[in-house]
Design a binder for these strands. Structure first.
Length: 774
DNA sequence: TGGGGATTT
């Protein structure tokens, strides 16, 4: 072919053993033309062959909103589908085993139907008589869409027999027997009902993901089993627990629950042929590009999904692919390149779900978002770079650690999950840009989140229900260092005292669905008269997605669009300007024409405003929900959320500084910033026998050490970090005496993100003891 | 000069 000089040459093909190439590149549908590919697992693991291709319910199927009076035909078709699921053959055995055992570990492959069927089997088997069946999910969309599917299968309206509960959205009532909920939601329920007495069965789904909340839930379930089922002193009705997981870690879950019975359910995934490279690839972006064209030239139709670590690689690969695609002969199928990552505008994210036009091949460049969170239809080929970005919190000795965000090798379970994305609708192919040896050397599964995140919020929540994270029987316990760091953090904001006891302020902070630092800013805003402003800011900080989205090649356009929002003091008041600018668009519109059509006109105007200012509207809508919830929390805590300081900036920055006390830095002569944490000025608490004594050095209850200063106050001793302001900050390259920041992230150096300029004098008023009047 | 992905009475 003429393009072999510009396209990667056929000699450099990474996958020489891949399916035979046709000399003529006519893209006739030739699914499953190579029978060997269907059966053999190649050099890697494969999925079992499917007898009857039928994908499981998709996360994106639209839920029926109302009681559907189903025709008999539809209803019986649904029941027929249920009976054909792989798990259906094991129905009686499952009911029997789960009834007979206190805890069951259920390993089900993708497509087995376990998540939709097990709760129904238990319901039909009479296990929901003393209480509900609760099924937990790590993600909200999964909980809501599964509930919709199962209520359809039960022929009852959503929120009737089958319901769900996720943050901001609940459809469950007195009749509800089967409830799908996020694991965070159930951990929340624990606070008010420590025995989960409303439930007779708890099914913990996707347990292998080992989210922080799943782990806390599992620990509590073990305790509840003892208390509700324990010999002699039962409280309430007995509880059954079913732990559902993908292939990994079955024995570990079983051991945790005293050698619980393990059951296996076959899946129904189409076969995926897996290829490994014969040599390690140094440049995975280039390898991905060459592999894509190898597929595009040699292989039958079907979309290609490429897993990459992050936005930067996606944008770079997109450019290369576009450049080479233009050089393809005219009779070749068009290449449609679609990027997919969380920080992408919602409208652009929709592009991956649009059907691929005839005569073209879609190539999706995605982060981990396509591994679990979304399912993209039409994918037949997966290219797996074997890399992902992983955030990991490094607890610092001063209670102010930082996050690392580094590209790392994925795990085996992640590699399997990625490969499986090629077999959703038919036999598929996965091209791994790493050797089989490299695969074998990968860790089995990701480290549990509880070992990788800040523990401040979790510890505070546990303290409120009288639990000690070091006493709690967890599957994996965090290091003492991480715990001590979190305790220091809680101490600095006044949530606990120097004896590790919860303070009245700590109890208030825990009542907010926020990180303790953000909750502290809300509480501080009461006396400073700026609660309205702090809620606007904190609700954005607590949102799951970023407010400002940047695509690298539109940088100056974006800067122009946002110019009016930028506040000279930095990122926090810029956020505030943005929230207020956006809200004002809605209010103006709604009051202008309160009659019909106003809602729609307002929505359109807000969307346009967000577009013009290059602001993520999804974040602003989520933030508005969070803000409503925080207003309720404020009312309970006796804080008037309407109180505003108008245009005054000082109270707002001071309130934020109370929460971010350990996230402050001072400028140094060479223009860099040095973190102040570890240099807090502290006063000795009046109740201490050391009060008013002047000694050279003090230690307070393993939480910290401090040295005396010439003015008689004490200064903490622990280390200080040199930090750089992140280039995305409005404060980048600005030199001011003092800053506070939302977080430190180490990528290629330690960056402060979410930065505001503050008066240096603020810091003196933030001593740990000064803040604890509650 | 640079942003994996979830989630909370």
């Amino acid at each position: 072919m003429s393009f072999t000089t510009t396209l990667p040459s056929s000699n450099s093909k990474l996958f020489k053993n891949a399916t035979p190439m046709s000399k003529k590149h006519k893209f006739k549908p030739q699914f499953g033309r190579n029978e060997n590919d269907r059966k053999s697992s190649g050099s890697g693991p494969s999925h079992s062959p499917a007898k009857r291709p039928m994908p499981p319910p998709q996360a994106h199927s639209t839920p029926p909103r109302k009681k559907a009076r189903l025709s008999n035909g539809v209803a019986s078709a649904i029941q027929e589908q249920r009976r054909e699921l792989p798990i259906a053959r094991g129905r009686e055995a499952l009911i029997r085993e789960i009834s007979a055992n206190e805890v069951t570990v259920l390993i089900g492959e993708t497509g087995s139907g376990k998540t939709t069927q097990v709760p129904q089997y238990l319901l039909e088997g009479g296990l929901a008589q003393a209480g509900m069946i609760g099924i937990t999910q790590p993600r909200k969309v999964a909980a809501t869409s599964l509930a919709a599917r199962v209520s359809l299968e039960q022929g009852t309206p959503l929120g009737g027999c089958v319901g769900y509960a996720v943050r901001f959205d609940e459809r469950a009532g007195p009749e509800t027997r089967v409830k799908y909920l996020t694991d965070g939601m159930l951990t929340r329920e624990l606070l008010g009902d420590p025995l989960l007495s409303r439930y007779s069965v708890i099914v913990v789904d996707e347990a292998h993901e080992r989210t922080l909340r799943t782990d806390l839930l599992l620990a509590n379930l073990k305790r509840i089993l003892r208390e509700r089922n324990g010999n002699g002193k039962q409280k309430g009705s007995p509880l059954k627990v079913v732990v559902m997981s993908a292939t990994m870690d079955a024995e570990k879950f079983s051991r945790f629950f005293n050698d619980a019975k393990i059951l296996y359910v076959k899946g129904r995934q189409h076969p995926v042929k897996i290829y490994h490279t014969s040599q390690n690839q140094t440049d995975y972006v280039d390898s991905a590009m060459r592999t894509f064209f190898q597929i595009h030239v040699d292989q039958p139709p079907g979309d290609v999904l490429i897993f990459l670590p992050g936005q930067e690689d996606i944008e770079s690969l997109q450019k290369s692919l576009e450049m080479f695609s233009r050089q393809l002969p005219i009779d070749f199928p068009t290449v449609l390149i679609v990027p997919m990552f969380a920080a992408l505008q919602a409208s652009q994210q929709q592009d991956v779900f649009k059907p691929t036009p005839k005569g073209s091949r879609k190539c999706i460049l995605a982060t981990n978002i396509a591994e679990t969170s979304i399912t993209i239809p039409g994918v037949r080929y997966v290219i797996d770079t074997g890399k992902s970005k992983e955030k990991r919190y490094l607890a610092g000795p001063t209670g102010s650690g930082f996050d690392t965000l580094l590209t790392r090798d994925i795990t085996k379970s992640s590699a399997m999950q990625r490969a499986g994305r090629a077999g959703r609708e038919g036999p598929g192919f996965c091209y791994r840009l790493y050797t089989e040896d490299a695969f074998k050397q990968m860790a089995a599964a990701p480290e549990p989140e509880i070992l990788r995140c800040s523990l401040a919020q979790a510890i505070l929540q546990l303290m409120c229900v009288g639990q000690d994270i070091q006493e709690l029987e967890l599957m994996d316990s965090p290091d003492d260092d991480a715990i001590i760091s979190a305790l220091k953090n809680l101490f600095i904001i006044g949530a606990i005292d120097d004896k590790r006891r919860l303070t009245p302020l700590g109890l208030v902070l825990a009542s907010f669905p926020l990180e303790p630092a953000h909750a502290r800013a809300v509480v501080a805003s009461k006396d400073l008269g700026c609660t309205s402003e702090i809620l606007d800011i904190v609700s954005v900080l607590a949102s799951s997605s970023k407010l400002f989205l940047d695509v690298s090649d539109k940088r100056s356009e974006i800067a122009d669009g946002r110019r009016k929002l930028v506040h000279p003091s930095g990122d926090h008041l810029t956020l505030l300007n943005t929230v207020r600018g956006y809200s004002a668009v809605g209010i103006t519109d709604a009051s202008a024409s309160a009659q019909e059509g106003a809602g729609k006109a307002g929505r359109n105007a807000r969307r346009e405003w967000a577009r013009q200012h290059f602001v993520n509207e999804r974040t602003l809508r989520e933030a508005a929900n969070i803000r409503d919830q925080l207003r309720v929390s404020c009312e309970r805590a006796g804080i008037d959320w309407r109180v505003s300081c108008g245009d005054a900036e000082e109270p707002v920055l001071l309130a934020l500084s109370h929460g971010l006390a350990q996230n402050a830095a001072l400028i140094t002569p060479d223009g860099t910033y040095k973190q102040t944490a570890g240099q807090q000025i502290v006063k000795i608490h009046p109740s201490s026998t050391m009060a008013d004594k002047k000694v050279p050095a003090i230690i307070f209850d393993e939480l910290n050490a401090a040295l005396i200063t010439p003015d008689g106050t004490y200064k903490q001793t622990a280390g200080q970090q040199i930090v750089k302001i992140h280039p995305s900050s409005t404060m980048a390259d600005k030199k001011v005496p003092a800053i506070i920041f939302d977080e430190l992230v180490y990528t290629n150096q330690i960056y402060a993100r979410g930065v505001s300029s503050i008066q240096k004098s603020f810091l003196a008023s933030l001593g740990a003891f000064n803040t604890r009047k509650a």
